[in-house]
């Protein structure tokens, strides 16, 4: 677990994430893993009981997980949302904006590099899942 970058104050979920199929068979699971192409909307009825959702990135260029993350946050999910797999430092800022708050990259990301990457963009043009105020809103305050 050394590779995990976590941006939450609560304790990490101890429970291993199960596949979507097993999740539907196990009524008490609180951690689930979505693969790139799996439909995040299937989890909407269960968001209250979930403590951790892990979204797999098989290749950094496959961006489906960004939509999955935003959909989960837009439907009120507040638990841990983890990006796992081919997660690179240059994608962290986008992932944070889509609602990910923990990262389990296959190849470790240097903590200082991550900090720098996440601090770089002071302003954003869009409303997304991170609660940051977009430029268009600041312009008309």
């Amino acid at each position: 677990m050394d590779n995990i970058l976590r941006f939450r104050d609560d304790g990490a979920s101890e429970e291993p994430a199960v596949t979507l199929d097993s999740f539907f068979d196990q009524s008490n699971a609180t951690a689930v893993r979505l693969e790139d192409g799996e439909d995040a909307r299937q989890l909407i009825p269960y968001l209250d009981r979930l403590a951790m959702i892990e979204i797999g990135f098989s290749a950094f260029g496959d961006g489906r997980g960004y939509s999955a993350a935003r959909i989960l946050r837009e439907h009120g999910y507040t638990g841990e949302l983890r990006a796992q797999g081919d997660v690179l430092v240059d994608q962290l800022a986008f992932m944070r904006r889509c609602g990910f708050d923990s990262f389990a990259p296959e190849k470790p990301i240097n903590a200082a590099d991550a900090k720098k990457a996440l601090a770089r963009w002071e302003e954003v043009y869009q409303n997304a899942a991170d609660g940051r105020k977009p430029i268009w809103s600041k312009r008309h305050e």
């Binding site: 950094f60 260029g61 496959d62 961006g63 960004y66 939509s67 935003r70 994608q91 800022a93 986008f94 992932m95 904006r97 889509c98 963009w121 954003v124 043009y125 869009q126 997304a128 430029i135 268009w136």
Partner: peptide, 11 residues
């Protein structure tokens, strides 16, 4: 402006 650095649609 909306599409610049769009977090969801960059991949």
């Amino acid at each position: 402006q909306w599409s610049s650095f769009h977090p969801e649609f960059s991949f």
